[in-house]
Amino acid sequence: MEESGSSSIGMKRTNLDLNDELGKLVMPGDEFCIPDDSSKVILGPGLRSVIDKPSGELKTIVGCKAGLLRKAKPNTFFLEMKTRSYQSFKKDDVLGIIKQKSKGEHYSIDVACRELRAQLSKNAFEGATKRYRPDLQVGDCIYGKVMDFPKDYPLELTCVQPSGKACGLGSLNGGHIFHVPVHFVRALRTANPKDNLLQKIGKIVPCETAVGANGLVWIKASNAVLTILVSQLLQTLSKANPEEYGTYLNKFNSTVRTVV
């Protein structure tokens, strides 16, 4: 058929170029050709490679979700989309709430993902030994890292980095914990100072924060009223357009002035 360009939207597209399609919408089934230069390409969520069965050679790259094609610095491509469900991935920092404290060696923890409970060893804290280890209670909030286990293993967390230091991981005292959509976490955790929302909020209200990749956010400001205000602001922002962030922050600024 002679149709091309925007009129062919809706049909499966083939032989797309990864660099040409950056920032554009990819639908499931859209096929990309493999880049000619032999530089390594890393595929993130939403993209997968199709391997030709008999020869074992890489055939095409196929999009399998509806999202915008994005590129991270060293040749990593992935699809960005709105999602509300978190899928655990190794080395992710997550926030969890202790749901059960058994007599054995583990706490069982709710990390708001598809596996109902994650395990956390009672010894996986900085400086913990069999005799001296932190005694956590049911309902306590912890900031942990997903252990680097093979696929389909039960989910396990740790509160200590491989170096033996905690580096911010561990139990969080006081504050307030709440849920935001998973795609909003990106806006909170980005290292780019221009986009980082938490830095902008921190200039208005100084507060301690911990943002888990699973969409849970922990906030602790100097008093309870400010903590609640910040949490309400973040929940509002998670539903707003990125263009509206500025106006919301200005409003928040004037509200905080009246409270303090």
């Binding site: 920032g23 997968r48 992935f78 976490v185 980005t190 290292a191 699973n214």
Partner: peptide
């Protein structure tokens, strides 16, 4: 592209950076 540029600093992994497959 402006948004995507990220420095590999304190943020080691976020929900968007998961990498599961290697391709050539």
């Amino acid at each position: 592209e402006e948004q995507v540029e990220m420095e590999p600093g304190e943020v080691e992994s976020s929900s968007g950076d998961e990498v599961d497959e290697d391709g050539e």
